[in-house]
Amino acid sequence: MPGVAYFAITEDPEHRPNRNLTGFWAADREEVDSIAQLVRESGGTVTAGPKLFPISPTYYAVYFEDPCGNAYEIVHRLN
Protein backbone atom coordinates (compact mmCIF):
# COMPACT_ATOMS: atom_id res chain seq x y z
CA MET A 1 0.00 0.00 0.00
CA PRO A 2 1.53 3.37 -1.01
CA GLY A 3 2.19 5.94 1.68
CA VAL A 4 0.69 8.89 -0.23
CA ALA A 5 -2.88 10.04 -0.66
CA TYR A 6 -4.79 8.72 -3.68
CA PHE A 7 -7.41 10.74 -5.49
CA ALA A 8 -9.48 9.65 -8.48
CA ILE A 9 -12.25 11.18 -10.56
CA THR A 10 -14.72 8.93 -12.32
CA GLU A 11 -16.14 10.55 -15.41
CA ASP A 12 -19.54 9.92 -16.89
CA PRO A 13 -19.30 7.37 -19.76
CA GLU A 14 -20.77 10.02 -22.08
CA HIS A 15 -18.29 12.63 -20.75
CA ARG A 16 -21.05 14.83 -19.33
CA PRO A 17 -19.93 16.91 -16.35
CA ASN A 18 -21.97 16.87 -13.16
CA ARG A 19 -22.46 19.63 -10.60
CA ASN A 20 -19.70 18.47 -8.24
CA LEU A 21 -16.85 20.83 -7.41
CA THR A 22 -13.54 19.31 -6.37
CA GLY A 23 -11.33 21.63 -4.33
CA PHE A 24 -7.70 21.57 -3.28
CA TRP A 25 -5.61 23.68 -0.89
CA ALA A 26 -2.64 25.60 -2.27
CA ALA A 27 0.50 26.39 -0.29
CA ASP A 28 0.38 30.08 -1.26
CA ARG A 29 -1.07 32.54 -3.78
CA GLU A 30 1.78 31.87 -6.18
CA GLU A 31 0.72 28.24 -6.39
CA VAL A 32 -2.86 29.32 -7.19
CA ASP A 33 -1.52 31.55 -9.98
CA SER A 34 0.73 28.77 -11.27
CA ILE A 35 -2.14 26.27 -11.44
CA ALA A 36 -4.32 28.83 -13.25
CA GLN A 37 -1.61 29.25 -15.89
CA LEU A 38 -1.21 25.48 -16.20
CA VAL A 39 -4.97 25.09 -16.70
CA ARG A 40 -4.94 27.63 -19.53
CA GLU A 41 -1.92 26.02 -21.19
CA SER A 42 -3.38 22.51 -21.00
CA GLY A 43 -6.80 23.21 -22.52
CA GLY A 44 -8.86 23.81 -19.39
CA THR A 45 -11.08 26.84 -18.84
CA VAL A 46 -10.61 29.28 -15.97
CA THR A 47 -14.13 30.30 -14.92
CA ALA A 48 -13.18 32.75 -12.13
CA GLY A 49 -9.99 34.14 -10.67
CA PRO A 50 -7.34 33.84 -9.67
CA LYS A 51 -8.35 36.56 -7.23
CA LEU A 52 -9.58 37.29 -3.73
CA PHE A 53 -13.18 36.17 -3.23
CA PRO A 54 -15.58 37.63 -0.62
CA ILE A 55 -15.78 34.28 1.19
CA SER A 56 -13.19 35.60 3.67
CA PRO A 57 -10.63 38.45 3.58
CA THR A 58 -7.81 36.06 2.58
CA TYR A 59 -9.69 33.61 0.30
CA TYR A 60 -7.56 33.62 -2.88
CA ALA A 61 -8.73 31.08 -5.43
CA VAL A 62 -9.11 30.04 -9.02
CA TYR A 63 -12.10 28.10 -10.30
CA PHE A 64 -11.73 26.12 -13.50
CA GLU A 65 -13.04 23.30 -15.65
CA ASP A 66 -11.11 20.52 -17.31
CA PRO A 67 -11.68 19.82 -21.03
CA CYS A 68 -14.61 17.52 -20.12
CA GLY A 69 -16.32 20.27 -18.09
CA ASN A 70 -15.60 18.95 -14.58
CA ALA A 71 -15.30 21.79 -12.04
CA TYR A 72 -12.36 22.41 -9.70
CA GLU A 73 -11.10 24.99 -7.23
CA ILE A 74 -7.60 25.70 -5.96
CA VAL A 75 -7.59 27.94 -2.88
CA HIS A 76 -5.14 29.54 -0.49
CA ARG A 77 -6.51 31.05 2.69
CA LEU A 78 -4.81 32.31 5.82
CA ASN A 79 -6.40 31.18 9.06
Rank of each mutant, 00 (worst) to 15 (best):
D33M: 02
Y60G: 02
Y63H: 11
T47L: 05
D28L: 04
N70G: 01
P50F: 03
D28W: 07
S42G: 09
W25T: 10
K51P: 03
I74F: 11
R40M: 07
T22K: 14
K51A: 08
C68T: 15
A26W: 01
L52R: 13
E11M: 14
A26M: 06
N70V: 02
D12T: 12
F64P: 02
F64Q: 03
P17D: 12
P17R: 00
L38F: 05
E11L: 14
Y63S: 08
V46T: 05
V32Y: 00
I9K: 09
E30K: 11
N70Y: 08
Q37F: 05
E73C: 14
A26S: 06
L21T: 07
G23V: 07
E11Q: 15
G49R: 05
A71W: 01
S42I: 00
I35D: 00
T58E: 04
G44A: 01
A36D: 06
P67C: 13
P54W: 00
A48K: 09
P67K: 13
R29L: 09
T10V: 15
G69I: 04
E11F: 14
C68W: 11
P2Q: 13
I55C: 05
R29V: 07
G23K: 10
P2Y: 05
V46G: 03
Y63N: 10
P67T: 15
E14M: 11
W25S: 14
P17I: 05
T58Y: 01
R40D: 06
H76K: 04
I35H: 03
I35E: 00
A48G: 07
T10H: 15
I9S: 08
F53T: 10
L78D: 13
G23I: 06
L78E: 13
S42N: 11
P67N: 15
E73L: 12
V62C: 02
V32W: 00
S42R: 11
